[in-house]
Amino acid sequence: MSEVALLQIIGLCVVGAGIFILLFIKGMFLRVVGFVAMVLGSFSLIALGVPQVASLPPAIEKFDLAKVKSPDDLAAIGQKIFFSKGQCALCHSIGPSHSARCPDLNGIGAKLAPEFLYESLTQPQAYIYLDFRHATKPEEYPARMPHINKDPIGLTKPEIFSVIAFLQKMSGEPISIKVEDVMDSEEDQTETVEVALNANSGSTSSVLVESGVAP
């Protein structure tokens, strides 16, 4: 027997019990309980009458950098990172958006060089002036942009490069990030403890990306 049929039978029993109470039992409080049971049972039966669909989580896709052949593949990975693990889309939009709290990144890949993009992602305060408006020693303005290569987001170098490739593609530009560069950066990075410690990615040779495509 399917789960739906089982629940339907339980619902019918509950409604039946309610009807029984209302027909034969005189205690007023019990009658109210029976009435409530009837209402709730009927509600469940109506909900069970609609064709049932459960929403399944998409499979966790594993991207192997070794399989990346063209800059377009890189941009496809970057797209997924931009909208999930990288959390970029929580603030930034591509194109005008009512809800975006931070600069619109439409055409950013055409306006800025990839090196500059990389620097703004990893050292967001690099070109922000200090606040001198008080007597004590100058302070940094409170940063809005987090360090993307550090926790809690903690993207690896190849991941950041893929995001930059994606941004270039979304600007209608040819992608200047080369697959070989990314491979090289991956080798560098095994020496940098800070990046390799990234808990989310697990291994340095592959980029784990969650995708919304159903299995």
């Binding site: 669909v53 797209q79 909208f83 889309a89 194109g95 979304m170 995708s211 919304g212």
Partner: peptide, 16 residues
């Protein structure tokens, strides 16, 4: 469902 929710990476892309 005719118009299901799109996966996250396709939300909010602008036409380049």
């Amino acid at each position: 469902t005719i118009h299901p929710a799109p996966p996250g990476e396709f939300v909010g892309l602008a036409n380049p």
